[in-house]
Design a protein around this nucleic acid. Sequence first.
DNA 1: CAGCATCCTAGCTGATACTG
DNA 2: CAGTATCAGCTAGGATGCTG
Lengths: 112, 112
Amino acid sequence: MTKIKQSGYVCSLDYAFQRVGGKYKGRIIWHLSEENVLRYGELRKILWDITPKMLTQTLRELESDGLIHRKVYLEVPPKVEYSLEEAGKELIPFINYLREWGETQMAKEGMI
Amino acid sequence: MTKIKQSGYVCSLDYAFQRVGGKYKGRIIWHLSEENVLRYGELRKILWDITPKMLTQTLRELESDGLIHRKVYLEVPPKVEYSLEEAGKELIPFINYLREWGETQMAKEGMI
DNA sequence: CAGCATCCTAGCTGATACTG
DNA sequence: CAGTATCAGCTAGGATGCTG
């Protein structure tokens, strides 16, 4: 089993960053907010730079933190859909704000 | 010299997270937004769990990313003050939003 | 299709001691 | 006071191959 980040929070900001920090969590939440529901394979295509291991691991963390919902269809071939839970939806404005801030900054630095 | 995080951004959200992610950046920005100006030693006291090395390293990254300003007084004993640049100030709403979200979540989980 | 299992490593983070 | 320098560990993240 993959090691799960240890708990122990210095403050609520620390707590929050441990939940949405990491390399892919923000982007996953963002794409889920845009599409509502995404399958594992779709996420994998959208986050083209992620490995299956990291995708699974990140999704599991988001799930156990109550930010996303994982719906398994008992079919063959398998089908799993991911969507935002309430706690995750509450992060959408924050994610968008950060995205816009990033765009502005990149524009200023002439990266766009 | 300490290694600096490699560049190469997938999108603006990725870019943004590389700038405010990490273990202490959010908290530093937050405290600077509350106090306006803080000296090195004051930050060290407030972020009681940080080592001098990490504090310096994190401050340097924030500085070279244009989020904070470093003002050196040529005195003995030395005095250095840190404050938010414009780009950093623009992150305050986001930081506060995230803090509040964290508090709500912690309350729900009975951690407060 | 949606994942596990295994092995591996870069670089983030830390402890401790020292300095202009 | 405000840092550096050194040494060291951990773990987030990656590569590759296999499976229900």
